[in-house]
Design a protein around this nucleic acid. Structure first.
Lengths: 336, 336
DNA sequence: AATGAAATTGGGAGCGCTCCCGATATGATG
DNA sequence: CATCATATCGGGAGCGCTCCCAATTTCATT
């Protein structure tokens, strides 16, 4: 292994000077800088990340925590895409990402280790679950963290999110404008903030137009494709003329049920999803949906976290990204 | 932050003794061990991972490298599932996982940093691409690594994989046994080992039964759903009575084309996929496919890597996991 | 009680770096 | 040329731990 000391010896400068050159400190004459860089390049010197971390008190490593329970239904590409955003941003800022797929069982055992062993400069958590003990533990620790998805249980936290309420509202509004009046909804898990908020947006939209909020028109699909299937079956006998489905994954299941039932989409029943996952463009018919900027969410989470690490005292950061209604064929807008 | 020194002071033992207790060294009397552990627990002491790494020369961090080009079509859940296996195994061995979604552009810049900055004890690479410069760079470095998916370009390496050739053979054989004689194939990218091997298995199976290998029956689908669509369209006019599709993702696309063309599956045309991704069970009709043990692949990759790290001189490790034919409805076996 | 072996403990050195402070070189100014 | 400010450089201390070796204690045995 090539060390600072060795470069110093070979280039005739001191350890400190080498460190300065490597870290782009301006207090080095051009002449010595050149001389040092030549040796650095020749030996392909890479500063030892561990030694650097120990001395500097900063590791340049961020953690991403994703509850395994969620990832086990990895049919939902939300997390991989989020990870991609996080990873891209970290690369560009010269940070490493460590991934922790948290198992609810060993959470307690690991949690305090992960939070206190000093390997991470900060963490990004995509928990969603309202009662997650992880969040409270995190709040009690001194480790900087940002949530992807807002969270009501911790008073002051940093998060990036989309406005699920108004996005859901937009989706339902769209159905209303197309003349639908018997609008049902398939919701996500009620112990997730996204699930709760999207339902709320649905309710608000109905109320705004003086439409009744019927309990039988609200069915839990648990954010899974199978859940979407079951929920749609339950809704079928009630003859809704539109369904706002709180995730594309569930919508895929719902569409299948409708096709099997011989209903024409969107003529007999219109569907709007949420997320704009890659699958949404390929359903039959293609799915109208609310597009979440998932990659951007991941990238901004990193930026926010780094900002907090640099400036611990600058107030909480809360970033809300806009969603976008992607109109395809399942809602009937193209029928004119 | 609580340090060893502090525990030493409070428990009246020396730094060395605390270290022994924390690391379960037997050379400590029960009495002092108890005394020390009491203080350790009281202060919730966590050994500093960075200091430990620097002193011990081992970081207990593994890297997972996945080329971003592949993950960008994250519709294929192969990588997320693999990641899950890797993560699970790492957790159980008390290792951390750092994720590197390698961008072909910055590969050169990052590569040498990642490989030489001493943060990783070893890496797991899921490259697939035959000409990946990453693999050669890795071969030239001293960092222990294992590949997920065998790779012909580096002579002696460690890998875990399934036998793609004989798996493909099994799949095609199955179609033959069901009486199909005009068997086509949609292949993966020809610059990936899995793509090449599965095609080879197809050819071998045909030859074994004296069936001709027709070039027009072999169409590249590039491992993507869109590719599967295009390939199936190309195949349609040739009236095959069966298609072996080298990935479930492509098979999903192929099935859609067949349905749109009004063909009955499996009566008019039988389909067998590869991977057994979650989507395979939900296609119409459900897809017969070769199941890859993806989670196990990830777990075994970790175990192999840790073994190599512990025993650098024990020869190369090559692990081949069995696949399994999952018979559903798309192949026609249930028709009797 | 003396002896020696084994068990237990403590302290020093060092992992490769950063950061601070003081030393030296350089150059501007009167 | 003297003086002082400024740019550049070097060395020491220390980050929190592990690992080795030597010191000390314990205990079985004669």
């Amino acid at each position: 292994m090539v060390t600072l000391e060795e470069i110093a010896r070979l280039s005739g400068a001191s350890r400190s000077t080498i460190s300065r050159v490597v870290n782009n400190d301006p207090h080095v004459s051009d002449k010595t800088r050149m001389r040092v860089l030549e040796v650095v390049r020749r030996l392909n010197y890479q500063p030892n990340a561990i030694a650097r971390s120990l001395a500097a008190g900063r590791t340049h490593v961020l953690g991403v925590i994703i509850p395994k329970r969620v990832t086990e239904l990895f049919s939902d590409p939300y997390f991989p895409i989020l990870l991609q955003g996080v990873s891209t941003a970290c690369n560009s800022f010269d940070y490493a990402v460590t991934l922790w797929l948290a198992d609810p069982e060993d959470e307690l055992r690991f949690m305090s280790k992960v939070l206190h062993n000093g390997l991470l400069d900060g963490v990004i958590v995509s928990s969603m679950v309202l009662t997650d003990p992880l969040i409270t533990a995190l709040g009690a620790s001194t480790l900087p963290f940002v949530l992807v998805g807002r969270h009501p249980s911790v008073p002051v936290v940093n998060y990036v999110d989309v406005d699920n309420i108004s996005s859901a509202q937009t989706a339902v509004e769209h159905l209303f404008q197309l003349g639908r009046r018997r609008i049902a909804t398939i919701t996500g898990m009620s112990d997730t903030i996204a699930g709760v908020d999207r339902l709320r947006g649905y309710e608000i939209a109905l109320r705004e137009h003086g439409l009744p909020v019927l309990p039988e028109f609200i069915v839990d699909g648990g954010f899974s494709e199978e859940g979407g299937v079951a929920a749609m079956r339950q809704l079928l006998p009630l003859h809704p003329d539109a369904v706002f489905v709180a995730s594309d994954t569930m919508a895929v299941g719902a569409l299948r049920v409708l096709r099997e039932a011989g209903l024409r989409i969107p003529q007999d029943i219109a569907i709007v999803g949420f997320d704009d996952t890659p699958a949404a463009a390929r359903t039959e018919p293609p799915l109208t949906t609310m597009k979440q900027p998932i990659i951007a969410l991941g990238e901004l989470a990193v930026e926010a976290l780094l900002h907090i690490i640099e400036h611990p005292d600058s107030g909480p950061r809360r970033i809300i990204l806009p969603t976008q209604l992607i109109v395809r064929e399942s809602c009937g807008a193209h029928l004119g």
